[in-house]
Simulated scan of single mutants.
Amino acid sequence: MAIPPADPATETFVAHRNLLFTVAYEMLGSAADAEDVLQETWLRWVKVDLAQVSDQRAYLVRITTRQALNRLRTMKRRKEAYVGPWLPEPLLTAPDVAEDVELAESMSMALMLVLETLSPTERAVFVLREVFEVSYAEIAAAVGKSLAAVRQIAHRARQHVDARRPRQVVSASETQAALESLQYALETGDPQRLLDVLAPDVVLVGDGGGVKQAALRPVIGAEKVVRMFVGGLPKVEATITGEPTVVNGNPALVLRLDGEIDGVLAVRVEQGRISGIYYVRNPEKLTRVESETPLTRR
């Protein structure tokens, strides 16, 4: 029995779903919220008269952006009540994401934390323009601003991000090498090996969400970070193992205690040493580290 073809609205939405999810995730840093945005986008999309839409992909991106902006404003209140630092939800990604250097950089923990310092509109404009190369006219339609205003917002957001993003582009192999050294140091519990791989002014940001133990503010300085890991990671006797993986298009480690996932650890590397450690332990944010999430800019 032949399966009836999907209706045009459904076919178009499914064809662009990975793009729309990527746009929403880049704006929100939360896969769960990005999925909610896609559901809201779908509900609006099925009511659209497709005969009146000249560019269906652009129209879908516009709807997704508007819904993500609405969600960003409600998330702000949630983050204000969040226990300790808030980190983006890590996503296990396929090799093609890592091969897209611009996408991988934009999704790194370090840069996504910079995006958190932008206003919702600035973030939307920056993401659409710099990551997805959307035209200024389309961005203006998506965020409800004039073309001139969008150009100004884009310029301001770019300056803000450039002033805070890593100064040097670090290759995946260099990041992987630093992670391997960190993994060995953690598995052996050797404080000196940890010190050797960390920059003196390294910053550790831990996200336990009030569910798992994590520092309530960033830990600054190599010696303090070593004390945190060596003395504070497992409060019980447990075997620590690191499992190399690719999260958000960048090398990372899944840390396990006696085989159970404890958290995901991503790093920022500068001049061969780790200058930033981002450790997500909140179990609610660890649901997408064992199966790949498809992401794309196209």
Rank of each mutant, 00 (worst) to 15 (best):
I139W: 05
P95N: 12
H160Q: 11
T175Q: 14
G144I: 08
A185T: 12
K212R: 13
S173Y: 05
V202D: 08
Q176E: 15
R151C: 02
A172W: 04
L103E: 00
F126R: 09
S173R: 12
S106I: 01
L204R: 08
Q213S: 14
D100P: 03
S181L: 11
Q213C: 12
A172E: 11
A172N: 12
D162E: 15
L113D: 10
A215K: 05
S108K: 01
A157S: 08
P166D: 02
V134T: 06
A148E: 07
A199I: 04
P120V: 07
F132D: 01
E130T: 08
V97C: 05
Y136I: 11
V219W: 05
A154Y: 03
T117W: 14
V127E: 08
Q159D: 03
M107L: 14
D190S: 01
K224Q: 04
E89K: 08
R156M: 04
V161C: 07
T175V: 13
P120G: 07
L194W: 10
R217L: 01
A178I: 13
L118C: 05
E174M: 13
G206C: 12
L182F: 09
E130H: 09
E174T: 14
L195Y: 09
R151I: 05
E102M: 10
E133W: 11
S135L: 04
E122F: 12
H160C: 02
V205L: 15
V150S: 00
E133V: 09
R167E: 10
P120C: 07
V101K: 15
A148Y: 06
L194K: 01
P166V: 03
Q192E: 13
V203K: 12
G209N: 04
G221K: 15
A142E: 10
A140L: 07
M107I: 08
G144Q: 10
S135C: 01
G189H: 03
L179N: 08
V169I: 00
K212W: 04
R151F: 00
V125Y: 04
R158P: 15
L115G: 05
S181T: 11
S173V: 10
R164T: 08
S146A: 01
L186F: 01
A140C: 07
V169G: 00
R129A: 06
D190K: 03
A94K: 00
V114P: 12
A178S: 14
E99A: 09
L118D: 03
A94W: 00
V114A: 11
G209C: 03
R123T: 01
A172V: 13
Q192R: 07
V143F: 06
D196R: 10
R158G: 14
A110K: 11
R217T: 06
A178E: 14
L115P: 07
V101L: 15
E174L: 13
E89P: 03
A98F: 06
L195Q: 12
L216M: 07
A185K: 09
S171H: 06
L147E: 09
V101A: 15
I220E: 08
D196L: 08
R164N: 12
G209D: 00
T117G: 14
I153W: 01
V131K: 10
S181I: 04
F132L: 09
R217D: 04
L118N: 02
L147S: 05
T121V: 14
Q213F: 13
A214P: 13
Y184C: 05
V114C: 11
D207T: 10
A154W: 04
L115I: 03
Q168R: 14
G209S: 00
